[in-house]
Design a protein around this nucleic acid. Sequence first.
DNA 1: GCCCAGCCTTGATCTAGATCAATGTCTTGT
DNA 2: ACAAGACATTGATCTAGATCAAGGCTGGGC
Lengths: 203, 203
Amino acid sequence: MEDVAYLAEHSELIRLERGEQAFRQGDPCDAMYIVASGTVRVVRLGRNQREHVLHLCVPGDSFGEVAVLGEMRMPASAIAASPSVCVKVPKGALQSAIQERHEFCRSLLRSMAMWTRHFVGLLDDLVLQDALGRIARYLLDLPSGPDGVVHLPATKKDIANHLHVSSETFSRVLRNLADEGQISVEQNGIQILDADALMQHES
Amino acid sequence: MEDVAYLAEHSELIRLERGEQAFRQGDPCDAMYIVASGTVRVVRLGRNQREHVLHLCVPGDSFGEVAVLGEMRMPASAIAASPSVCVKVPKGALQSAIQERHEFCRSLLRSMAMWTRHFVGLLDDLVLQDALGRIARYLLDLPSGPDGVVHLPATKKDIANHLHVSSETFSRVLRNLADEGQISVEQNGIQILDADALMQHES
DNA sequence: GCCCAGCCTTGATCTAGATCAATGTCTTGT
DNA sequence: ACAAGACATTGATCTAGATCAAGGCTGGGC
């Protein structure tokens, strides 16, 4: 935890308006970021102007660390999906923390392993599951409020893209689930009515 | 490099027959492996008996390290696709190398970042590219012999699965590419005749 | 307030690629 | 050498989900 104090000392807070970019795919990397409030879309763009939302970062999530640790250019762009505040930890501070503090280095190693694990999860979600399965899983994994209402961290469009379904399909699937009484779509989120039934759709 | 010597001292060689498993998905992890010869399929299985080849490991590639570093159960199974020899580095040896040697720890951190990067590549291959694009990219990325002939590291079936296309589609795409004179399918590999044209299919 | 642009929903159509089927061709074990 | 099974190729069909199209809804700027 003294690691955190050290890093905090060398970090700064940045504020992003909706649509503003922390960095662009291909930029040399100069820092990693931690979301303090708001939501940040981490987006990968292919040529032919298609794009894919790799991650929707909510408060507590970090992004850009892979590029810093791997000494590579930014592999994706980071765009605020809503007005956001982030902690910007400069590359130099992170690197010297790694260099100086063996314990910090080890804990990063562990968290990188979890990152890789996470991507493997996304990967076989894409490969082994259909649209309904991915959506059901996503809803179940979302942190839910005390009343069982989950709050969607971004527009349905972005979430659909992240799950690799068109927004039309996303809309239709939610409709069907609602018709079957497994969820109910409220104005500010989604109420999960039958988690067991939702789980049946997975895999 | 003295790190390597230390690890080698605590490692053993194992031999796998075709079809034999180094470990199964869900096993507690006890070691990481490095392929010395042969090919090892790292396979993720979903329920409903579908499976996905996450990685086809050729000599020099390692597998299982993510589980060791993350202190988790094996997230996939490892099955020899051909008779293989692997170096088995026990969990304990790896962990004490990490604990004792800060420099080793840092270099692992860098290589884990590359791993993550690799998976992001797979991910947007799946999402942003069609079957032809993925296959073209795969062929171009394969290490080619001096004569420009690339050797396929496993059966077409396994490669097709890894690229997330059916083996039928894989077959048809190769056929089309051959008909257009961009590749030629030899008995022991594929001759790339027009790399530029192949690149056009990407993204 | 009113307008505009971007979201969301619903319906109709289209298509890449899966699946099914049939046949041919290697391997591998006995 | 032979049989049995896996692998590979090719053609015919099917389908999940994309894309196209058309309104309705909403929130931010003037």
